[in-house]
Simulated assay, not measured.
Amino acid sequence: MSLNHINLVVKDVDKALHLFTNYFGFSMVANRNSKMAVLENNDQFALVIWGQVLNKREDIPEYPENFHIGFYQEDQEAVWNMYRKLKEEENLRFEAEPKSIRNTFGFYFYFEDLMIEVSVNPFKENLK
């Protein structure tokens, strides 16, 4: 069995599409009038970007405390490169620069109220 998709609710579908296609390797499969979109990556994992407008609400959706999605980078240099690129985007909030977090190296940022982690895979050595 494999995970098929995750549904993320956002206020601005187009800005989410920009983020995930330009920085995280996703390609758009479908865009339904900027109200809902489906993205897929090379692993055939899908993100469903669901516009809050479909919930008949206009506000930025709230996520539970500590809910986040994470993306692994190859090494610390790749984490720094991603951080520098993302810092150029206007609509993102950052907690801090990349640093040691738990047993890895990375950083957190927010798109709307969705927390996203970028880090080095702490289990990489155990996967060989």
Rank of each mutant, 00 (worst) to 15 (best):
V79D: 02
F45W: 09
E89S: 01
F123N: 12
E95N: 10
K11V: 03
E62A: 12
K85L: 15
L8S: 07
H68P: 02
N66Y: 01
D113E: 12
N22S: 15
F45L: 14
N81C: 13
N126W: 15
F20E: 12
G51K: 08
V13Y: 03
E74L: 14
V13E: 10
E89Y: 02
Q76I: 05
L8F: 11
V118C: 03
P122M: 08
K99F: 05
F111L: 15
P122V: 10
T21A: 14
V120Q: 00
Q73K: 15
N103Y: 04
F109N: 02
H18D: 10
F109H: 09
V48I: 13
Y72S: 06
A46V: 01
L39C: 10
M28I: 13
A96K: 10
V10R: 05
E117P: 14
E65L: 09
M28H: 03
E97N: 10
N103E: 13
E95A: 11
K99A: 10
I49L: 03
W80M: 10
N55F: 03
L92S: 14
I116Y: 11
S27V: 06
L8G: 00
I116T: 11
Y63F: 09
A46Q: 14
V9K: 08
A16H: 01
A16P: 04
E65W: 01
E65K: 12
Y110H: 09
K128C: 06
E125A: 15
L17Y: 05
G51N: 12
K128N: 08
N4C: 07
V53Q: 08
Q44N: 13
N91H: 06
V79W: 07
P64D: 08
K99S: 07
R57Q: 13
A96Y: 10
L54P: 13
V120F: 07
W80F: 04
E90F: 04
H68R: 07
G106W: 03
H68T: 06
L17C: 12
F109D: 02
L3T: 08
F45I: 11
T104E: 01
V53S: 11
V118E: 02
Y110M: 08
V53L: 11
R102G: 02
E112F: 04
L86G: 02
Q73M: 10
E65P: 08
K15H: 05
N41C: 07
V48E: 06
F45K: 05
Y63M: 04
K35W: 00
H18G: 05
K15V: 02
Q52L: 04
